[in-house]
Design a protein around this nucleic acid. Structure first.
Lengths: 349, 349
DNA sequence: GCAAGCTTTGCACACGTGTGCAAAGCTCCC
DNA sequence: GGGAGCTTTGCACACGTGTGCAAAGCTTGC
């Protein structure tokens, strides 16, 4: 016991100049080769039960953890997946990241998160940085990467998956919810409710999702011979929805409004309450996303739901197909959306 | 041009069996040694302007990105920081992750996010996994790691920083908001408002933060000779707050309630509205956290704010001190909180 | 006991980078 | 032109792991 303790102390001193225990340290304590240590920690590799036991004991004693960086060097790839997102505290985005990071871990993948909140030069520099970690894939939840950086990713065998952003001139995979279909659902629902003086609330953000929803809704309403009033300035935030209510309802006698996100809609509802209008009797309001707060008692927002689990499932499926060497062509997936009827839109006329 | 194009094509084929461009590829195209390539991409290393230019041109042509995994192998450390969190879509946690990931990136650190939502064996296995990536530090926002894994981290030179969780028997750094002081503020504010029939709403979660707030508040109220009614079941969610309102207000005629989180308080407020009580005339409600939704028009919740930027700042400061080799003793930091007066607590009696 | 076949082992190399150091190269001054 | 001093360069090694392969070891059947 004394000799054993002295040996362990000596081994620990031997690596004092570096922090982490190496396979070499374990091999010395276990009295085997470094190769045996490696084989013990490599599933399916050949090692005798006796050696395996001695190695595991030594590893436990020393607190050895395989160095994934070194391991990844051999395969030229890590199990990292880069995830680029901004506005991570906004309800919809927070939910998306929650579910995606959960699903990645479940599949043995690790999430390298890059917050694009202050990406003044766009997301390209972030993607360049991610590439240096030899990730398997990159999921872009915010920002629109230029095609040059996407081409570079593809050249390096790294899939880029755009979530809810669609740029038709890139080589990236895209997985989006059916914004056009959702906007049509919203338009039809308002028309069905008898609304004829209609508004649409967006924000100052020039994101593809918001523009797509606003334009599609506007087109549908104009097909019915109505020219909707438009609000499109400010941040994509609750406060903007409230400002839109005061702005639009001060100058228009609207009876139906579509907000391109639920967060805008919740602010709009609170602003509309301040003008004395009754919801939905005087004014119907419909949103898009179905964030948790939309179901809260003061709101009970009627909205178009995009399924977070469908989105996440598609992202993971795309990554896994690539991982299993099944070369696939670009994925362009449009996920269905559905109407969630609550209390902010009148029943049929 | 033709010869140059042929040479580039040949170089690309040479590495066809691996995805990423290496420094060796760049060196061949630029006609220099691989060492020159390395020096070109190492700040402060000696390389002539001519060689530097040729290397950079070749790197751009081939799309070369330094392999951070290999680079980290030399230093036995990456610039990764492990972040462990659960309930990432809850407003408070989402905000914390948003700010932390933003600040890490700003400091040249990368966020390795591990979602602990389904960590049935606690967070220790996640921390073990993180250690394999040779991270610089680990920030734990959810879960209570056992001291054994924390000791292992320390032995490997990895700081573990617990945020808003305090276990006095561990070697981890802890950065928490002043839950005791905040609970005292809430208690005093309700007493000052003249409340004498007081309740406290927690959840079924046995997290240190919630227990601490509930117990501290209860102690303060009992010092005033009042025995508060307690609710402590269900998830830490809006719906639990609503259930607590129905449960407590159905059996108690309360005039003041402290909810240990804002999310519980918002649900409680909506549940209280359903019982016909006026806020704050009949019933004062105070929360803890100051999430964005607390300022929304239907709520305007009076609450105790913990400063997210202070929390994040302390975490980053701790990581950076460690990075700069300034060996410091354990950090135990308690950040001040403050009362945010809105509309849910009566004025003074 | 011996041969055949299977399992296990350690050596030496690879992976992609940074760096110490000796040698080569360059610049400046006398 | 030569010497001194500075800059630059490429070689060879390190970092920590996985693996091909030849050699060693083990097991089974005759």
């Amino acid at each position: 016991m004394v000799a054993s303790s002295d040996r362990e102390d000596q081994l620990k001193r031997d690596r004092a100049t570096r922090n982490f225990v190496t396979a070499e340290d374990v091999a010395r304590l276990a009295g085997v080769s470094r190769s045996a240590v490696s084989r013990t920690f490599t599933p399916g590799a050949s090692v005798s039960a006796d050696v395996r036991h001695r190695v595991q004991e030594a590893a436990r004693t020393l607190g050895y953890r395989v160095n994934r960086l070194a391991r990844s060097l051999i395969s030229d790839q890590s199990n990292l997946v880069g995830v680029v997102g901004a506005n991570l505290s906004m309800p919809f985005m927070a939910r998306q990241l929650d579910e995606l990071s959960r699903a990645l871990l479940k599949r043995g993948l690790q999430c390298l998160l890059l917050n694009a909140a202050e990406a003044e030069q766009g997301v390209a520099p972030l993607i360049e940085l991610i590439l240096e970690f030899r990730v398997r894939a990159i999921v872009v939840m915010s920002g629109s990467p230029p095609s040059s950086i996407i081409d570079e990713c593809m050249a390096n065998g790294v899939r880029v998956i755009l979530v809810n952003r669609q740029d038709t001139d890139t080589e990236a995979d895209t997985i989006i919810s059916d914004d056009l279909g959702g906007a049509r659902i919203a338009a039809e629902r308002l028309l069905q409710a008898g609304c004829r003086r209609i508004g649409v609330v967006g924000s100052g953000a020039r994101t593809p999702t918001q523009i797509r929803r606003r334009v599609a809704f506007t087109d549908c309403i104009e097909e019915a011979g109505i020219k909707p009033a438009v609000w499109a300035s400010g941040e994509t935030a609750y406060e903007t929805g409230m400002a839109a209510a005061k702005g639009l309802l001060g100058s228009h006698d609207l009876d139906g409004v579509f907000c391109v996100t639920d967060l805008l809609a919740l602010g709009f509802l609170d602003g509309a309450h301040g003008t004395g209008r009754r919801i939905p009797e005087d004014l119907s309001v419909i949103g898009f996303d179905d964030i948790p707060q939309s179901a809260w008692a003061p709101y009970r927002l009627t909205t178009v739901r995009q399924s977070m689990s469908d989105l996440t499932g598609s992202v993971l499926a795309t990554i896994e197909r690539e991982m299993h060497g099944k070369a696939i062509s670009l994925v362009h997936e449009v996920l269905p959306v559905e109407l969630v009827e609550r209390a902010t839109v009148r029943s049929s006329t």
